[in-house]
């Protein structure tokens, strides 16, 4: 039986956009640097964001917490009989992000594909692209993310 149902295929092309209600801010940058043990002086001073910060933070999203405590972007998609695991990320950094940048994140599902794991379980790979822009529309970062829905063996 295929996991690639009409409901799964219909994910492709879905989009979501989130604009931060405030500039990123020095405190957010310094907090991330402290939390990751980053001793780069430009990061600790809050002058320049560590590169992966904007892809990681839910600061822009303004969604309520779900039952798992998560308050970030998601597609509210659950595939019965599978468990969700993270595949990976691919970032392209176009220019350093600074405290006065007001970030807009735009997510799009670009692909769904059916694959088989090494142990023979079916899985669906959902690929999304997030683009982050500043208040002038300048591209800051692109983030391609894969989520994998692996069939749970009975």
């Amino acid at each position: 039986m295929t996991l690639l149902t009409d409901e799964v295929r219909a994910l492709v092309g879905r989009t979501a956009t989130y604009t931060a209600p405030e500039p990123l801010g020095r405190a957010a940058i310094r907090y991330f640097a402290l939390a990751t043990g980053d001793d780069n002086p430009a990061h600790l001073a809050g002058d320049v964001a560590p590169p992966t910060l904007v892809c990681e933070t839910n600061q822009f999203v303004n969604l309520p917490r779900d039952e798992n405590g998560f308050a970030g972007h998601g597609w509210d998609f659950h595939l019965p009989g599978t468990r969700e695991v993270r595949g990976g990320n691919s970032y392209r950094f176009h220019r350093p992000v600074r405290p006065d940048d007001v970030v807009t994140a735009t997510w799009t599902v670009t692909d769904v594909a059916e694959r088989t794991t090494g142990s023979g379980a079916g899985m669906v790979v959902v690929t999304s692209l997030a683009t982050y822009t500043d208040q002038a529309g300048e591209l800051l970062v692109e983030n391609e993310e894969t989520l994998i829905y692996v069939e749970v063996q009975p």
Binding site: F32, A35, T36, T57, N58, R65, N68, G69, F70, A71
Partner: peptide, 15 residues
Amino acid sequence: DMVAYAGATWDWHRL
């Protein structure tokens, strides 16, 4: 360290 990272990224997932 994980609690600090969760705070810094506004990610409060129970995981």
